[in-house]
């Protein structure tokens, strides 16, 4: 199987704690790869290392064959990786539509040189509004387009984060607990959205989640982490039946 994202032997320490202790994973193309593990097992740290927020002490991250270890987040974005946060990081006082527009790639009007000349970016801006509206319709957020993001409900914020990620035409989306704090019905809805998006847009997902009951049925491949190490990997059923995983979760 083709794996565009590979990490090899990543090590990240905070003081005396080894948050990542030699993590190697493969994220397969157009699949939903799930990382599970109890709190503090290093899942979010892994996302932060892949997306350039933390520099690993050792190991490397490869995306489509090129080494992206330690690149700043905005360079990682240029390679085609977009991430979402556990707590939505929206541009709070900007409207829903503005949040979407900022997320787009290569908007000519964002260059200071061109900003003064409306004719140089008006058409691009119109196209982006059209694209944003289509994504918002997909997520049932289109009626809220002119509302400030801070007025949305928690679930809508989660959806907007996903919408914003899609706006950037990513090759791969890394999601940090997309259903944390969301009721089970909406949580399932979010995953249904992800499934249909993957099919429509040929997207690859790497999702960190610890609500196994909801997330597992949607996953194609699962890694289980504990104390900075990968302790199990395989199909959802294989990992679920692994005794080591059960012990990690139950704290045995």
């Amino acid at each position: 199987m083709d794996a565009p994202l590979k990490t090899r032997d990543l090590v990240k320490t905070f003081g005396g704690i080894r948050a990542l202790d030699g993590v190697s994973i493969d994220v397969y193309n157009e699949k939903i790869t799930l990382i599970i593990g109890p709190n503090g097992s290093g899942k979010t740290t892994l996302i932060n290392v892949i997306t350039g927020f933390y520099h690993p002490e050792r190991g490397e991250v490869k995306f489509n064959g090129s080494n992206i270890t330690g690149l700043p987040p905005f360079k990682i974005f240029e390679k085609g990786i977009v991430r979402t946060f556990q707590i939505p990081h929206l541009f709070k006082s900007l409207t829903v539509l503005e949040n979407m527009l900022v997320a787009s790639r290569n908007n000519p009007g964002e260059k200071l040189r061109k900003a003064l000349f409306k004719n140089s970016w008006r058409r691009a801006e119109e196209h982006l509004v059209e694209k944003a509206l289509r994504i918002l319709e997909l997520l049932n957020l289109d009626h809220l387009w002119d509302k400030p993001a801070c007025t949305l409900s928690g679930g809508q914020m989660k959806l907007l984060e996903i919408g914003r990620a899609l706006m950037a035409d990513p090759l791969m989306v890394l999601m940090d607990e997309p259903i944390a704090g969301v009721n089970p019905r909406l949580a399932n809805e979010i995953f249904e959205h992800l499934l249909s998006l993957r099919k429509e847009l040929n997207l690859t997902f790497l999702i960190v989640e610890h609500r196994l009951d909801i997330a597992l049925p949607y996953a194609d491949y699962v890694y289980a982490m504990d104390r900075g190490k990968i302790i199990s990997k395989g199909s959802p059923s294989e990992v679920l039946e692994d005794k080591i995983v059960a012990r990690a979760y139950l704290g045995g």
């Binding site: 997306t51 927020f53 700043p72 987040p73 905005f74 974005f77 240029e78 977009v82 991430r83 946060f85 990081h89 929206l90 541009f91 709070k92 006082s93 900007l94 900022v102 997320a103 790639r105 914003r164 950037a168």
Partner: peptide, 10 residues
């Protein structure tokens, strides 16, 4: 509004 999110979006 959010420096980190802006960085995520390139």
């Amino acid at each position: 509004e959010d420096e980190r999110a802006a960085e995520v979006y390139g």
